[in-house]
Each structure stands twice: as C-alpha cells, then as structure tokens.
Amino acid sequence: MNRICILSVEDEPEVRQAITRDLEGFSKLFRIEVAEDVEDAKEVIESIDGDGDQVGVILCDHRLPGTTGVEFLIELESEENHSGIRKVLVTGQADQQDTIRAINTGGLDHYVAKPWQAEVLQGIVKDQLTEFILAKDLDPIPFLSMLDDPRLLERVARGSRID
C-alpha cells in the first residue's frame, strides 16, 4: 500500500519541530514531511508523488517567505491531481480576508491558531485524515487503530471498496 503523507509547511524551525513532535504518533501509519516555504513544499510534493505516495493533509502557515500559505492552498486546489488534499491553515497572522479567500477559493478545511495545544492539533489531523480516507474510498481497515474508528467502521459495515 502506498503511504499517505502529512505535509507541514512552516518557515520557523522551532514551529516546524513542534508540529513534527506533536504529530510523531501518526508516523506509524503515515509519512510525515516538512517544508520551509512554498517552493520547498512543491519539491516535497513532487517527491511524494514520485514515490507513489499521496499527500492527505497539508498543515500550512500563512506568512511564508515569497508566496503566502493561502496563495499556495489556492494553487493546490486548482490542480486536479491535488484537489482532494485536506488543507489546514496553522497561523497566528492570517487576517479575516485571507482566511475567507482560503475557505472560498483554496478549499480550506480547518483553521488552527498559533499557539495550539498538541491534543487539539492531533485531533484535527486525525479528523482530516479520516475525511481524506473516506473521500478517496480507501480501505479503512488499516487505519482503524489510529483514526476516527466509528466513521471508518461505518464505511466497513456499508461495504467499502477494498484496494
């Protein structure tokens, strides 16, 4: 089975490390990648795609050097092969207009304000990964121990497609 990836796009090393630390428990089943900016994120996504894996969730800061996180999420949403990625804006600096644009044009699925609590971030990632698996109609059984098992079990009971 190809792996599903969680990608964090964050320019501040301490914040990148905190996100990686908070998501470490997901690494048993999911590939975790980081990027410093949008250009780096595009290279990481290309590498993930090249490995036959797929990005399931992107956690993206808004204030990044060069292209903003919101602009990146909008760009991803317009790419057919990446439009199903679950998008989470993790920022303390996006204004209301940026957030509205991210929701309306970038397919934003969730917003997390900095600083966050580890349990809250983990819960959001768990929920977004569950949504990704259900939307992609992936076999939910391998993920029951880590994700939203009632929703995944409901899919199993209804007879999900098994890859």
Rank of each mutant, 00 (worst) to 15 (best):
M1W: 09
R3G: 12
I4D: 03
I4M: 01
C5I: 02
C5M: 08
C5D: 12
I6R: 00
I6W: 01
L7W: 02
S8Q: 08
S8V: 13
V9Y: 03
E10P: 04
E10G: 03
D11I: 02
E14R: 06
V15Q: 12
A18C: 08
A18Y: 03
A18V: 06
I19Y: 06
I19W: 01
T20Q: 14
T20M: 14
S27H: 02
S27I: 00
F30P: 02
F30Y: 00
R31Q: 13
I32E: 04
E33A: 04
V34S: 15
D37L: 12
D37E: 11
V38I: 13
E39N: 04
A41Q: 07
K42C: 15
K42H: 13
V44A: 14
I45M: 13
I45K: 03
E46M: 14
E46G: 15
I48A: 10
D49G: 06
G52C: 12
G52V: 04
G52K: 01
D53Q: 07
G56E: 08
V57F: 02
V57G: 03
I58T: 07
L59M: 05
R63D: 15
R63Y: 12
R63G: 12
L64R: 00
L64N: 06
L64H: 06
L64M: 08
L64A: 03
G66Y: 02
G66E: 08
T67I: 15
T67P: 06
T67R: 15
T68H: 06
T68A: 07
E71A: 08
E71S: 05
F72N: 05
I74K: 15
S78Y: 03
E79A: 04
E80I: 07
E80W: 08
H82G: 05
H82Q: 08
S83Q: 10
S83P: 01
S83V: 02
G84A: 15
I85C: 10
I85Q: 05
R86L: 11
V88C: 12
V88Y: 03
V90K: 03
G92Q: 07
Q93K: 10
Q93I: 13
Q93Y: 11
D95S: 04
Q96C: 09
Q97G: 09
I103H: 02
I103G: 08
T105W: 11
G106A: 00
G106D: 00
G107M: 06
G107D: 04
D109H: 06
D109A: 08
D109Y: 05
H110Q: 08
K114P: 05
P115E: 09
P115G: 03
W116V: 05
Q117T: 10
E119D: 11
E119R: 02
V125D: 05
V125R: 02
K126H: 07
L129D: 10
T130E: 09
F132P: 00
A135V: 04
K136L: 15
K136H: 11
L138K: 00
L138N: 08
L138F: 05
L138S: 10
I141M: 12
F143I: 04
L144T: 05
L144G: 00
L144M: 05
S145L: 13
M146W: 02
M146D: 10
D148L: 04
D149V: 09
D149M: 12
P150G: 07
P150T: 02
R151S: 11
R151E: 13
L153N: 15
L153W: 11
R155A: 14
R158K: 09
G159I: 12
G159C: 10
S160L: 10
I162A: 15
D163I: 14
D163Y: 11
D163N: 14
D163H: 12
